[in-house]
Write a protein that binds this DNA or RNA. Structure first.
Lengths: 174, 174
DNA sequence: GAACAATAATTGCATTTGCAAATATCGGTC
DNA sequence: GACCGATATTTGCAAATGCAATTATTGTTC
């Protein structure tokens, strides 16, 4: 077998193709799914972040802004402005709580609810197309796998902080 | 079984949880992977888009800007500016071709090559952590599945254009 | 009940990105 | 060899985003 000039370290055989690594692939596929879905729903006047907010509200009922930020993993300052825009479009309500004026409650309007329900068939269709070819392949539940991967990724967070701290320390010494 | 108030249409049982749909999950997992990886490599002075560019160059050698845009699916105007920044940081070279002054050739510098090779173990580690629990589960090749899903997604593109066109037409009539 | 810490949301600001328009170069045609 | 369409890249501009600072409200302590 011939060495691959680009993918080797000196003296070794082909090692690893970064663009075929699992992290790279998973990221690309996930981002691409988001972009396609985004384009598909654009005609409904909804962006992907708006869709995510509506989906969360649809499933859980009204939420405080901070909780909504946690559920959707949308940064709270971004979400604050996004909800403002969604309110302007009549998709959600936003109101300070009477018993605690610090917090703001967000809820779907009937219009928002109707809209998100219109989008369900699209999600189902995308799901169908994406995993169509695995129905026959005994991949029992790819969704479960993804959910588990999402959990696994959490164990990387402390590692990342530590690694960055270590690198910073090493650098400041140099 | 009790109805789920949030997840039903009137009169029906629990239908579908958008946040547990395959498109939603795949997107979230993929984006999260990217964010974590991005944070992990930040200490090396590299952003995720820069990493993607370096990975592509590392595997294929020098490229014209347009080809690099196609390979990485980074919009060419974004890539143009990104490469400018990477050149300033000494990671890549950028030079107009002598035989065709329209095109620009991008290449890794030794510094860029060294840097991307430093990041390989991180990618391997992330891969390890993410799929650790499936080694025992007879999921022979999750990467292949993802690559196939990426291909499946392509079939959505013409649909999307058509659906948007149809919606536009319906709206202008109304 | 005034002062101060804690919690929740918003705003300011700089960066990144995508689309569209502008620029630069090439290849062919008369 | 000047003109024109095609190709390749860059630039202008507006929108989205994250972090940090600010504002608003509540709870606690003396």
């Amino acid at each position: 077998m011939e060495d691959c000039k680009s993918c080797t370290k000196p003296g070794s055989k082909t090692l690893y193709r970064l663009t075929n690594s699992f992290p790279y692939l998973l990221n690309r596929v996930g981002v691409q799914m988001g972009e396609l879905f985004s384009r598909r729903i654009a005609g409904y006047g909804v962006t992907l972040p708006m869709y995510r907010v509506m989906a969360a509200l649809w499933e859980t009922g009204d939420q405080r802004l901070g909780d909504l930020a946690a559920m959707t993993t949308i940064e709270i300052s971004t979400l604050s402005r996004l909800v403002g825009e969604m309110k302007r479009r009549g998709l959600v309500t936003r109101a300070r709580l009477k018993d605690n004026g610090r917090t703001v409650a967000i809820n779907l309007t009937p219009k928002g609810r109707t809209l998100v329900e219109e989008l369900i068939p699209i999600a189902i269709h995308f799901e169908e197309v994406a995993v169509r070819d695995f129905a026959s392949k005994n991949i029992s539940d790819l969704k479960t796998i993804l959910a588990e991967i999402y959990e696994s990724l959490k164990s990387l967070e402390p590692e990342i902080e530590e690694a960055n701290k270590a690198r910073k320390a090493a650098k400041s010494k140099a």
